[in-house]
Amino acid sequence: MSQTAILAAILAEREARWNMRREFASEHGQAVLSLTLNIPGADKNPAGSAEAFASLQQSLRHRIEQSCGHTGCILAEEERAGVDGPCWVAAVNLDPLALKALCVAVEEEHPLGRLADADVLDAQGQPVNRADIGHEARRCFLCETPASLCRRQGKHSPEQIVEYVRELLEHARCDGDC
């Protein structure tokens, strides 16, 4: 598959995922969580990505259940896997700001949290951002600069970033026993 075809497939999957999240919000009238992996480059399914995704998903489920007080907080869910990597979308019976706070906690505290991209929509399908809960933007993989600024400035080579992510994925694949 050519780079152009891969990019087109990734963009099509992202659009389908966006539509699915909005449909979940509309159908269930609840906050919607979407978990994907933040993997740079064209290969969104490198070795270790399935293990990293499963670990992050389990951590989010656990925090949701703890916050909710029972296991019935997730009203509906769907998992997908494709050229854009694994994805989990869930309608969650929690306040969207509280759900976003749980997601940020996993992104910041889990050993693989930097790989997590946990987006939240409110019941009307509007995104809930880190700023909405008083958090700063995500940091770069390699330094303390906001990721979006670091990317625009080209502070790190793509090879440096890919190597960092590869090391995180290796940790996930070995479950810390390497």
Rank of each mutant, 00 (worst) to 15 (best):
E136S: 11
M20I: 10
R63C: 11
E167M: 07
F53T: 06
Y164W: 10
A147W: 02
D132F: 03
L97F: 09
S157M: 05
G72M: 14
W88E: 12
V104G: 05
S34Y: 01
P96E: 04
L142C: 03
I74H: 14
R14W: 01
Q160P: 05
A98D: 14
C178K: 07
L115P: 02
L169V: 04
H171C: 08
T71A: 14
G29D: 05
A8I: 09
A90W: 00
C174H: 11
P158Y: 03
A47Q: 12
L37G: 09
H156P: 09
E144M: 09
D122E: 07
A42T: 09
W18T: 07
E107T: 03
A9L: 08
D119L: 15
Q66P: 03
T71I: 11
L112N: 07
V162W: 02
L115M: 03
G82I: 13
Q153N: 11
H171S: 12
C140F: 03
A81T: 09
Q66E: 15
Q66M: 06
C143Q: 05
R80W: 09
A98P: 03
R166L: 00
E27R: 15
L56K: 11
A76F: 13
L102P: 05
S2I: 01
L37Q: 12
L169W: 06
A16R: 15
E13P: 14
T4H: 13
E170T: 08
C174I: 05
E27V: 10
W88G: 07
A31Y: 00
L102R: 04
D95K: 12
L11R: 11
R21Q: 15
E79T: 10
L169K: 01
T145V: 09
I6T: 10
E79H: 14
E27D: 13
L168E: 00
A137H: 08
A54M: 07
R138F: 01
E13S: 15
S2V: 01
V92A: 08
P127I: 01
R61G: 03
T145E: 12
D119Y: 00
V106E: 06
V104Y: 00
G113R: 13
P46S: 02
Q124L: 09
E79C: 03
A131Y: 09
S49R: 04
P127H: 00
S55I: 02
L112H: 12
Q66N: 11
A116K: 13
W18E: 13
S55P: 02
H70M: 05
A98E: 14
L35K: 05
N93E: 12
H171F: 15
P158F: 03
L35R: 03
L115W: 02
C174P: 04
V120A: 03
Q58C: 08
V128T: 04
G29F: 00
G125I: 00
Y164L: 06
